[in-house]
Nucleic acid binder design. Structure first.
Lengths: 187, 187
DNA sequence: ACCTGAACACCGTTCAAGT
DNA sequence: ACCTGAACACCGTTCAAGT
């Protein structure tokens, strides 16, 4: 089953969604199509499972960051969160891109919802533990930071920025988040 | 040709990418498959053209907002930009969703690049004309605001937030952008 | 000239036959 | 019990035949 997932990524990287055929994945994984259909009832389930596995790993990384930052100063937490998400998405940019494309074809509402709920829980707990801040509405602030950070990273990714532009944007994103939480206290 | 695009949207809304077949689009548009292949050399070109048309309209709306806001105060510009983009994406949420999914299958780098270049030009000119602000690096600030706003709207969209949560996030996004540009002046 | 839609190639999925 | 891969249905694309 892990061999099938690995084969799927390889085939995706080679030919994109267009070139992702069950025959090719089975061949690459070293099993027959029939066997593959015992693990996954159809091609969609295969792609769904692959994205599920990816999001699970990503959520685990974010949770680890949140635990490591528990009780830290707010600004440091934000930088750590941006750093973790940014790194996870860019360290294998080709895989990230292939998965973004593959998941779009699916009815992915449940996938996105579960991932968001899990990750939001972790980041909200982290924010609530900040040593130097209290929030009037931590849920709202958490949702805002999450949507802005994840959304911006994705947008940066889609634009295909040069690494200097990407670095600059990443720094500005940090500045913006810091300015936002600083302004919250003054309302 | 416009009839074919309209038919494509209808078919997409009904059955998603899964249900988008050339036969169905042709049938719905009232032409034969053969005729459709005279307008579009293949299915990809059809989906590409549809997204191109959509992004063209969206860019035109953003340009119109930028021109209308020329010389206005900075905070008002930002609110107008968020408003235009947010409205454009949410007024036909089902169409937006269908197009997000359809474009993901394509090699869309050129599409995204052209759209970004055109829209960034308009917003940068707007920002440079602000009556109450001067920027040390207007290009960098513009890229940051663009990536954050478009990225956040998309993320909000994918999360399928309730309309109250979406409204709250939209307000916070405005606050965050305001705090960011205010902090720029103090560096 | 232009349109049509049957025909072809290819891919997702199944299931009879093999071990 | 489990695996295999030929066979079937369906979809993208073409092009001979029709107007």
């Amino acid at each position: 089953m892990d061999a099938i997932f690995e084969a799927t990524i390889q085939v995706l990287l080679k030919g994109g969604m267009q070139g992702l055929t069950t025959t090719r994945v089975a061949e690459r994984a070293g099993v027959s199509v029939g066997t593959m259909y015992q693990y996954f009832p159809n091609k969609q389930a295969l792609v769904y499972g692959l994205n599920e596995r990816y999001l699970d790993k990503l959520a685990a990384r974010i949770e680890a960051t949140c635990e490591a930052q528990s009780g830290a100063p707010l600004a440091q937490m934000i930088d750590a969160l941006i750093d973790t998400y940014w790194k996870a998405k860019t360290e294998r940019a080709d895989v990230t891109r292939a998965l973004y494309r593959s998941v779009a074809e699916l009815d992915n509402a449940a996938l996105v919802h579960d991932f968001a709920a899990r990750v939001d829980r972790a980041t909200e707990a982290m924010l609530a533990s900040a040593s130097d801040a209290v929030f009037a509405d931590v849920t709202r602030t958490n949702l805002t930071l999450a949507a802005v950070i994840y959304g911006t990273v994705r947008n940066a990714f889609e634009r295909g920025l040069s690494s200097q532009d990407a670095e600059a944007l990443r720094a500005e994103l940090g500045q913006m988040c810091h300015a936002y939480v600083a302004a919250l206290g003054r309302d």
